[in-house]
Design a protein around this nucleic acid. Structure first.
Lengths: 205, 205, 205, 205
DNA sequence: TATGAATGAGAATTCATTCAT
DNA sequence: CATGAATGAATTCTCATTCAT
C-alpha cells in the first residue's frame, strides 16, 4: 500500500490515464482502455490505484504539483506585479500548449461538481489561484494596483479569463494567434482595461 | 414523439432533470432519479425524450433560448458599450443567482468535451458569447475601446472572468459580496484594468 | 366480452396484425405497430383481443377455418385419391400465393414451439393435415395406394414437401415455375416417386 | 473477443443456450436463464458472445458444420443414389433423435424470417440441402431418376417431408415407429411413390 | 507483482397493458 | 366504444473490481 509514485508502472498508468481521460472524459473512459494504453493488465491498475476515482485524483495531484512548482519558480524571478501577471498568463498558456491532455482534464473533469469539486478538496488548484491573489495583494501594497480591487474576486476573474480563452484555444485546431500575443492581450485587459480613453495608454506598445 | 414541448409533463421533467443533473452531474444522475423527482414513472420520460442525452440537450436549448432573449432585451435598452458590458455582467450573475441549477449544468456539463462539446454543436452558447463580441466591436467603432483589443479573444476573457467568479459564487453557500458589487468589479477590471494610475497609465511599462 | 368477430374493427385489426406479424415476426411486432396499421388506438386493440397472444391465435383460427372450408369444398368434388392429392397441392400453393402474409405466419410463427405449439393445441392445423390422411386412407381402401404406407407419416411427408417448397417459393421474389407445375411435381413425386424405372412411368404425361 | 471457441466456457454456454432456446424459443429465453443453466454469471456470456443474437448464430454455425461433415462422410461411402437418399433420411432422423434440442432450434428458430432468415445468410443450411440436390442430379445423370424431376424443387420436397415428419416425431413423447422404419417410409415415398401398381404405373392417369 | 477471466450490481430502455377521460 | 398517456416490470448489456493462478 505504501507502493506507488516511485514505481515506473505508476507513472506509465498516470500517463495512459491522462491520454484516455482527455480524449473521452472521465465517465466515458474505461479502465480497460487505460490498461491497454498503458500496456498492462486491468488488474495491475488496482495494484497502484485504489479505484478509478483515485486515478483521476492522483493524476491531478501529481501534475498539479509540477505545474505549481514551475509557476512559482518563474514568478519569483520577477519583481513587478504587472510583469508577474503577464508571466503567469504566458506560463499558463504555455503549459496548456505543451500539455494539452492534462489541460483538458483540469479544465473539464476537475471542474465537475459531479464528483470532485464537492467531495474532493482541490487544494492544489487553490494554491495555484493563490499565486494570482498574492501578486495582486503585493501590487496593492506597493500602490500599483487599485485598493478597490478585491483580490479574491480578481484572482478568479483573471484565471477565468485565461482559462476560457485557453479552452477554445486548446480545442480548436487552427491556432490564430501565438501564445505571446494571447497572453499579452489578456494581461493587458486585466491591467489596463479595454477602454481607450484612460490617459495616454494608447501609446503603450 | 414530436416532443410535445408544450405539455406540462415535458416541463416537469425538464425541471426535475435540471435539479438532478445540477446536483449529481449528468453521468451520475439516473433516469429513475429524474423520474422520481418529476413524480412520473421511468417510462414516461421516454415519451417526451429520446434518451438521457436528449434530456440534457433539450434542457439546455430550452433554457438557453430564454437566457439569450432576456440578455438581448436588456442590452438593447442601453447605448454606451461600457454600460452594456456592465449590464451583461450583472444580468449574467443575476441569472445564475436565480437559476443556480441551470447555471451549474451550463458551467459544468455542457462544457464537457466528454460527450457534448464534440458531438453537439453548441450554437446557443456561441450566440451568447457573441453578444459580448458585438458590444466590444461596437465600442471599438465608436472609439471607446482600444483598437488593439481582439474581440474574439476579449469576449472569451470577459465571459471567462464572469464565469469563473460566478462558479465559486454559486458553489459557496456564504455569499461575501452582492451581485451588484461583483458585477461592477468584473466589468471595471475589464474596462479600466486593475492598475491604479488611470490617467497617467501611459508612463507605466 | 361477447364482442368481436362480427365487428368491422375486429377484422381490420386481424388484417393489420397479419401484415405486421408476417413482416416482422410475432415477437418483433409491437402492438403499437398493429394499431397504427389498423388505424386505431393501441387501447382499442384490447377491446377486441385479450392480449397479444390472442391476436395471433385468433388470426390463425379465423383464417384457418376459411382455408379448411375452401380445401374441403374443392376436394369433395373429386373422387380419385390421386387427383385429390394433386388438387390439395395446387390449392395449398394457390392459397399461399394469394395470401402470402398469412402463409408466412402459419409457416413461421405457428410452428414455433416457443409459445404456441406447446401451449396452444393447434386443432385447425391438425384438421388440415387430416384431409391428407383421409385421402391416403381412402386410396388404400380402394387399393390405389400401397398398404405399406403409414397414413400418419405420409400425411406429414406430403405436407412437409409442399410446405418446404412453398416456403422458399414465398420468400423468393423471382418465381421460376408456376403453381401448376410445382404442384404437379410434388404430387407426382409423392404418387409415383422420382425413380425412372418403375414400369412405363417414363411415358406418363 | 476473438471468440475463444476452444475455451471450455464457450462450449458450456453453447450447450446451455441450446437447451434453453430449444425449451422456450429464442425470444422467450432470457440471458440470465442461459447463464444459470451454464453455471456462470450473466456477464460472462458477454465475454464469449457479442450479444444474444450471436449466441444463436454461433450455436447454429458450430453445430451445422458438424452435421454437414457427418452427413457428407456417410453419403460418400455409398454409390447408389437411391441408397444415398435413404441414408440421408436415416442420418437426418438419427441426428435429430440424438440431438433433439439442436434439432428443435434449427427447425423452429432458424427458419424464422422474423429475425434471422432475413439478416443472416444461412449458408450452412443451403449446403445441407444441396447434398440432396447433388444426389438427385447424380441419379438423373446415371438414368436412375426421371429427367422430369426438378432437382431444386425435389430437394426441398424431400427435405420438407423429412423435416415435417421429424418435427412431430421430436415433439411427441411416445414414439410409434423407430427411425429405420420412418426413414425407409419417407425415402420410399420419394423414390417409388405411394401408388400401389409399380410396374404397371404407366397406365395410371 | 502481474494477470485477465469472472463476477454481478446497476442502468438505460422497451413495450404490453391499463384506465381516466 | 375509443383513446393514448402513463405505467413499471422486465431485460439486455456494461464495466469497475476481485482473486485464483
Amino acid at each position: 500500500m505504501a507502493k506507488r509514485k516511485n514505481s515506473e508502472k505508476y507513472q506509465i498508468i498516470i500517463a495512459a490515464a491522462t491520454k484516455v481521460f482527455a480524449q473521452k472524459g472521465f465517465y466515458q473512459s474505461k479502465i480497460s482502455e487505460i490498461a491497454k494504453e498503458a500496456g498492462v493488465a486491468d488488474g495491475t491498475i488496482y495494484i497502484y490505484f485504489e479505484n478509478k476515482d483515485d486515478i483521476l485524483i492522483s493524476l491531478f495531484e501529481e501534475q498539479m504539483q509540477a505545474v505549481l512548482d514551475n509557476m512559482n519558480s518563474r514568478i519569483v524571478t520577477l519583481t513587478d506585479p504587472a510583469k508577474k501577471l503577464e508571466e503567469f498568463a504566458w506560463t499558463h498558456l504555455n503549459l496548456i500548449q505543451k500539455n494539452k491532455d492534462m489541460a483538458e482534464i483540469i479544465q473539464v473533469e476537475l471542474r465537475q461538481s459531479g464528483k470532485f469539486m464537492k467531495e474532493y478538496k482541490n487544494e492544489k488548484f487553490s494554491e495555484y489561484l493563490n499565486i494570482i491573489e498574492n501578486i495582486i495583494m503585493e501590487g496593492q501594497e506597493s500602490g500599483l494596483f487599485k485598493k478597490s480591487v478585491v483580490p479574491n474576486v480578481a484572482k478568479r476573474a483573471f484565471f477565468g479569463a485565461l482559462d476560457e480563452v485557453s479552452r477554445c484555444w486548446v480545442l480548436s485546431s487552427r491556432r490564430q494567434y501565438d501564445i505571446k500575443t494571447v497572453a499579452k492581450q489578456i494581461s493587458d485587459y486585466f491591467l489596463d482595461g479595454i477602454t481607450a480613453s484612460s490617459g495616454a495608454t494608447g501609446i503603450q506598445a
